[in-house]
Write a protein that binds this DNA or RNA. Structure first.
Lengths: 113, 113
DNA sequence: TTAAAGCATAATAATATTTGCATGTATTTA
DNA sequence: TAAATACATGCAAATATTATTATGCTTTAA
């Protein structure tokens, strides 16, 4: 059982436009830092910082290939997460039927008062 | 087609321990502010601030019942997200087979050099 | 063996997030 | 009508996140 706290940390780490793009690209295969430098159009140190943040949180990892660092996806939740982010929903959750219970001030269960 | 940017904002808003707990509780039914004040063990203004942040981002909404504000889930992605956060994975994504392509410095596609 | 490529690190500045505290408003009850 | 309940708002302080700049290390190529 993985602790929810860890998963929330994971959410925080993922929740950034640049890092989402990094993860998207990594679903298509291995990439090195300068690949991202080209495709993301941000500075190389900034790329490194995002990659390091992702790595220290277990989201990605790399192997060394000469002077390249080849990053790849590690966290299995990521593909599911990216898919969920693109999922379309027809409509909002409907508001609760208006409101026999709360109008009496007696919430289901233990409404104190 | 909902823009990815909006979904990333949604991620940012969700990615907080208190707000995740709020959303968890709302999956079980309508709650008012003081309900959260009890269950979350944080100050009332802090509860309000989290609720307002969730509301201004379209995650939740409320109806007024006398002097109570009864909050409920609105964003249909939330239940799926909470489920995904609890999903267990047997193992990490395996590292790419070591590494015929990158060792030649010829990434699939357009490796420059 | 020098230079360049590829990447990381450190320090700083800018910005955003989060919380705490004090106070304000509306609704209900006494 | 005064007090209490339920909640919001404003402001400041603390903290976290992000980007920038300069620099350093390692590996490869000339």
């Amino acid at each position: 059982m993985i602790p929810l706290e860890k998963r929330i940390d994971l959410l925080r780490v993922i929740a950034h436009p640049i890092r989402i793009r990094i993860l998207e690209e990594l679903t298509h295969g291995v990439k090195c830092v300068s690949d991202f430098e080209d495709s993301l159009d941000i500075s190389q140190p900034n790329v490194s910082q995002h990659l390091i943040l992702l790595r220290t949180n277990g989201v990605i990892d790399f192997f060394v290939d000469g002077r390249l660092k080849c990053y790849f996806l590690k966290e299995p939740l990521i593909p599911d997460m990216l898919e969920l982010l693109k999922k379309e929903y027809a409509e909002d959750i409907p508001a609760p039927a208006c409101c026999p219970v709360t109008k009496k001030r007696t919430y289901p269960g233990e409404r104190r008062r």
